[in-house]
């Protein structure tokens, strides 16, 4: 509870400091809008040319795009400490100043950055969700709304976990950090579309290793009344938990990496 309070207070303070430069903030937020708008434009053009993708109708495609975009950018907004700021924290020695404070490292890293510019990306994603849900005539129920929230929350953990792999690479001062982008940004790009359209290796990658399909797309299929896989309906509520499992495993690896950091010294 105390940790959540600290996180919220830190976020408040970071927001305050971001708004010290309103003009720059405005420009960058606008740039983010154009960026995610460009991604959505690409989707619209694909739908314009191809109409549908197998059994997935335009509305479904908007919905898949939206759920990924909302989750991914929520993570980049509130988890910026992990998704963006960590490498420079290691390089500039800021990690040392976190180590001399009586709080968990992950907590402190998360408390040290926020990226409110992503708000426009999240807005684009929400728009896509609304369009998708209209076009596909989704009948919203309490269960579906709950599942949506569940998917987005565990998706947050999943994406945070994947970015933590990059953080671990950084601690071990491995240079090929860009490699991790293949699963983070690559995963985002690929899983804007339902994973079932991909050949087996990619499907396995995004189901078993970076389980975007389980965490976001199985629930999306349930909400659209078009199951992603031929699994019973209740699995939709269970699958997102895999995001927490992945986060847990990588969290432990991160702790081991911190142990390594403290014993090697950089």
């Amino acid at each position: 509870m105390d940790t959540i309070k600290l996180y919220i207070r830190s976020m408040g303070m970071l927001l305050k400091s971001q708004f010290q430069y309103p003009a720059s903030f405005f420009m960058q937020t606008l740039a983010q809008l154009v960026m995610e708008g460009g991604e959505m434009l690409a989707l619209i053009l694909v739908i314009d040319r191809f109409g549908h993708l197998g059994r997935w109708e335009p509305g479904d495609l908007f919905f898949f795009f939206g759920i990924m975009s909302v989750t991914f950018y929520l993570t980049e907004c509130f988890g910026r400490g992990i998704t963006g700021a960590f490498p420079s924290m290691v390089r500039m020695g800021q990690l040392d100043t976190l180590l001399i404070r009586p709080r968990g490292i992950v907590t402190q890293v998360l408390c040290s950055a926020i990226d409110p510019r992503r708000i426009t990306c999240i807005a684009v994603g929400t728009t896509a969700l609304v369009i998708g849900s209209r076009l596909s005539a989704v009948r919203w129920t309490f269960a579906k709304a709950f599942l949506m929230a569940e998917a987005v929350s565990f998706g947050f953990l999943l994406i945070l976990g994947l970015f933590m792999i990059e953080a671990i690479f950084c601690i071990h001062s491995v240079k090929s950090v860009e490699l991790v982008n293949a699963v983070t940004y690559g995963g985002r790009s690929a899983c804007q579309y339902p994973a079932t359209i991909y050949p087996r290796p990619l499907r396995v990658l995004f189901t078993a290793f970076a389980p975007f399909a389980l965490v976001l797309q199985v629930p999306a299929g349930y909400i659209l009344d078009k199951p992603l896989f031929d699994w019973p309906a209740w699995t939709a509520f269970l699958c997102p938990l895999s995001g927490a499992v992945l986060f847990g495993v990588i969290y432990m690896l991160f702790q081991r990496a911190m142990h390594f950091y403290r014993s090697t010294g950089s």
Partner: peptide, 16 residues
């Protein structure tokens, strides 16, 4: 790392 990442992106796009 960058090249491999770029290759994966290429593969994903082509699959799509």
């Amino acid at each position: 790392g960058g090249i491999i990442c770029q290759m994966v992106f290429g593969l994903i796009l082509i699959a799509l």
